[in-house]
């Protein structure tokens, strides 16, 4: 464990707390893509299936259980408690275009052709693009609540912080995980546009608005 990975994981935790906080205080899931949140449940379930047969550390175990359960809880909030506040007509990105290609890619580019290994690889590829429905939704409405932008900033920072972690691990441990690294760089890249608006507008106290 190094400082970059720890900060990355803490940013990931923070993003979830911000999202749940937003929903509870505004009693609404307006502006949040249900599809993106559902993809995260799929990502966590397919990646953390190793909970059933591997022990890494208490930290690793607790975090995995937290990510699975909190993502399920968010889905529950959106589907039941705050359902009337969700507008499916804005959440129109076709997830088949993400899940299908990610699965095919996982079948082709993986470390070993085994079920759990392919599921792990699939989860890495899917996580990289799972934010698309959310970004697509914001593109359509052209705006976002400030709290939603804090959520996205923390979520984007999480994978961005994994990049210096991988560089650090290469020099200290000699390990490189090409699948995670390439997907992580793509994932971070998808946030660059958002980060630009976040830093130049939201952090200056302005509303998050995209040019028409």
């Amino acid at each position: 464990m190094n400082i970059f990975r720890l900060l990355g994981d803490l940013a990931h935790l923070a993003s979830i707390f911000i999202l749940v906080h937003k929903m509870h205080t505004t009693r609404s899931c307006r502006g949040i893509s249900f599809k993106t949140q559902a993809l995260y449940v799929l990502v966590f379930l397919t990646r953390y299936i190793d909970l059933l047969y591997t022990w890494i550390s208490l930290y690793n175990f607790v975090m995995k259980v937290f990510f699975i359960s909190s993502s399920g809880y968010i889905l529950y909030l959106m589907k039941y408690r705050f359902r009337p506040t969700h507008d499916p007509s804005l959440d129109t990105f076709k997830v088949e275009y993400l899940v299908g290609p990610c699965f095919v890619l996982a079948l082709i580019f993986n470390y070993r052709f085994e079920v759990t290994e392919i599921l792990w690889t699939f989860s890495i590829y899917l996580e990289a693009v799972a934010i698309f429905p959310q970004l697509f939704m914001m593109q359509r409405t052209g705006e976002a609540e400030t709290i939603t932008t804090h959520y996205l900033a923390a979520l984007g920072a999480y994978r961005a912080l994994y990049i210096p972690n991988w560089i650090y691990r290469y020099f200290t441990e000699g390990t490189v995980d090409p699948i995670a690294v390439v997907a992580g760089i793509v994932q971070t890249g998808l946030y660059l546009d958002f980060f630009y608006v976040y830093v130049t507008k939201v952090l200056q106290g302005q509303k998050f608005e995209l040019p028409a």
Binding site: R5, D9, H12, D50, T54, I56, S57, N60, M63, K64, F67, Y111, W120, Y162, N165, Y170, E173, G174, T175, V176, D177, I179, A180
Partner: peptide, 10 residues
């Protein structure tokens, strides 16, 4: 030398 990845990340 580069070793194969260990899956200890989240």
């Amino acid at each position: 030398s580069v070793r194969p990845p260990v899956k200890d990340e989240l």
